[in-house]
């Protein structure tokens, strides 16, 4: 079943066109990977989808769960089930992780007209999610991302994803900053969370992550749009040949 449909998406930053007609369909249960050289607009796509201010959509449409995504506020998109694991998570001093998660979980439940989560259920959920991702209690007690190492920040993103169970999760360069054991653990967590009702869009530069989370589709992006799509073997091919060759530039 179709989860998101992106049609001819054009996005400007500072009046400069970065996305130049991006198309993609993702169905529930699918895992898509996007690869592409630095600066081609992968993070821009992610930011535009979650509604980052200053990302001006000049053309195109995005239908998410049958609704016009581009019409929604940032938080509405999140509450509808869109989740972005940021390439560079923001540090928020003074706001504790636990307080933050409780507030977010309740905001979601309120959106679905549910009662606030009971403290016991909340703690269970926290325990389950943190064990799944492998983050320490110490981290949970600290302020959001404050003073976290690069890898800890990435783990924290996936911890939040596990807590929130989104329909569509976009993972922007999850693998950068994670050591090999953490990468394995986080990938396993994602595989466990994967089911026929949700979908993942994985932005990465390396085959390595895709060895653990096997994608159904691989897309190569260049200069603001998808230039080539294929199955998981496309990523392998890319690893051995490089972008120029794959994109037919040589």
């Amino acid at each position: 079943m179709e989860l998101i449909k992106i049609r001819d998406l054009h996005v400007n930053i500072d009046n400069k066109e970065i996305l130049k007609g991006f198309d993609l369909n993702i169905n529930r249960g699918e895992v898509h990977a996007i690869m592409g050289p630095n600066g081609t607009g992968k993070s821009t796509l992610a930011s535009a989808l979650v509604g980052k201010p200053d990302y001006e959509v000049t053309k195109g449409e995005v239908i998410f769960k049958g609704k016009d995504l581009l019409e929604m506020e940032i938080e509405e998109r999140a509450l509808e089930g869109l989740f972005l694991a940021f390439q560079y998570p923001v540090e928020i001093p003074g706001v504790s992780m636990i307080n933050f998660m409780k507030t977010v979980v309740d905001a979601r439940r309120e959106y679905r007209k549910e009662e606030p989560i009971s403290p016991v259920d909340f703690l269970k959920l926290v325990k389950r999610s943190s064990e799944l991702v492998g983050i320490s209690d110490k981290m949970k007690g600290r302020a959001v991302n404050e003073g976290f190492s690069g890898g800890e920040k990435k783990k924290n993103e996936i911890f939040q994803m596990a807590m929130l169970q989104p329909d569509l999760a976009i993972l922007d360069e999850l693998d950068s900053g994670l050591d090999i054991d953490s990468l394995k653990q986080v990938a396993e967590a994602i595989n466990k969370l994967r089911n026929e009702n949700n979908a993942f869009l994985i932005i990465t530069h390396y085959q390595r992550l895709l060895d653990y989370i096997v994608p159904d589709f691989v897309h190569i992006m260049n200069d603001g749009k998808i230039v080539k799509s294929g199955d998981k073997d496309l990523a392998k091919e890319l690893e051995s040949k490089g972008y120029d060759d794959i994109m037919g530039l040589n």
């Binding site: 940032i74 938080e75 509450l79 998570p89 928020i92 933050f100 507030t103 977010v104 905001a107």
Partner: peptide
Amino acid sequence: AMFYLRARGLSEEKSKELL
């Protein structure tokens, strides 16, 4: 930080108050 909180589903008001 505002954007990060809103991208997790908190309203603008709630994010502001929290921060």
